[in-house]
Simulated assay, not measured.
Amino acid sequence: MSTKPLSSYQLTAEIEQAFDGVVEATARFCDAVDTRKPRQWTLCDTSAPAQWLRQALEDMWYEDGQDGRATRNYIGVVLADDTTLELAMTLNERKDHFGTLVGQLRKQSASAVAELKVHLPRRHPAVEAPLEQRGLARLHLKQTWRRLPIAEAPLARLHLSWYTSGRSIKRLTVEQAQEKLAAFNNEAAHIRIQWQKLAALPSDEILAQVQHQAPVMRGNLFFKEPLADGHTRRALNMALPLIIPADHTDRLPLINTPPATPPTHRTRARREDTRIEDDPYIPSLRLYRYRSQ
């Protein structure tokens, strides 16, 4: 027996409850850190790490002029006992649930999602009032559901470095490119030029749509003991503080100190065998041709 999809109204109601769950789980985790006062480290210079952690996890809001695709990084480490670790995992579960529901609603109604960004903070007066004073009235969904990175086991060492060369590549046919270009103002001269360039391509040519990704802090985790699968290290992105299980020593791992802000240029040499041309063929769509073999 199939389950009938929820209506936009029903989904919105569930999202409201899921957002409440995220807010409550965030508060419980931060309260536990305040009470237990575990060892912490932050990339920024702060005299109040517990207060900084709460600020990092409660930062779910747009700032004036902020690109909706961009999120703010909070790089740090928290050494967690079993109770605190369990609360961190529960918080991630609540974030996952909230993100899944918003994704379902976006497929049904983009306008309803836009309304949520303004409506949800109003469910928590203690949250809304200071936000309005700072001009932060809209919810930043990506910052709301992004997960806390959690190490699988105690660490001996943590090496941090900015990764600035990330990009995602989607393959498009010429026909798909034409469909996307049709959404632009076809009376504009630069769009007409791009139509002509597309028309000059073979119909079976594949183009690469490239999206350059924002710089991210990459953490290389070196475990004190091999994991069950035999691995001794992991790598993960760290937009939020890394939660590390504490062991009997209650010591932070060795941590290097990278620059507080990402470099303005690529930190890795361009691969000599890259298959994508240097300059975009259709700039409005970030489309590149593949180099001929």
Rank of each mutant, 00 (worst) to 15 (best):
S2P: 15
S2L: 14
P5K: 09
L6F: 04
S8Y: 00
Y9K: 15
Y9D: 14
L11N: 05
T12M: 08
A13E: 15
I15E: 09
E16V: 02
E16G: 15
E16C: 12
E16R: 15
A18E: 02
A18M: 02
V22A: 03
V23I: 04
V23N: 07
A25D: 06
R28V: 09
R28N: 11
D34E: 14
T35S: 09
R36V: 00
K37N: 11
W41H: 07
D45E: 14
T46N: 09
T46Q: 08
A48M: 07
P49H: 07
W52V: 06
Q55E: 13
A56F: 05
E58F: 10
W61A: 07
W61C: 02
W61Y: 13
E63F: 04
V77C: 10
V77I: 12
L79M: 06
D81E: 09
T84L: 08
M89S: 09
F98N: 04
F98W: 07
T100R: 14
G103E: 03
Q104D: 12
L105G: 05
Q108G: 07
S111V: 12
L116C: 02
L120N: 11
L120V: 05
R123T: 12
R123D: 05
H124G: 07
H124D: 07
H124I: 11
E128C: 11
Q133W: 08
R134H: 05
L136K: 15
L141E: 12
Q143S: 13
T144V: 14
L148S: 08
P149N: 03
E152Q: 15
E152D: 13
L155E: 05
S161T: 08
W162G: 04
Y163M: 05
T164A: 03
R167K: 13
R167N: 12
S168F: 08
I169S: 02
R171W: 01
L172D: 01
E175R: 11
Q178N: 06
A182K: 14
A183I: 03
F184T: 04
N185A: 06
N186V: 05
A188N: 04
Q196C: 02
Q196W: 04
L198Q: 00
S203P: 00
I206Q: 12
A208F: 07
Q211M: 10
Q213N: 14
N220E: 14
D229E: 05
G230Y: 02
R233I: 01
N237L: 11
P241Y: 00
L242A: 03
I243P: 01
A246M: 03
A246V: 12
H248V: 11
H248M: 08
H248K: 15
N256V: 05
P258N: 03
P263A: 07
H265K: 14
T274M: 11
E277F: 11
I282V: 15
L285N: 11
L287F: 08
Y288H: 15
Y290A: 13
S292E: 15
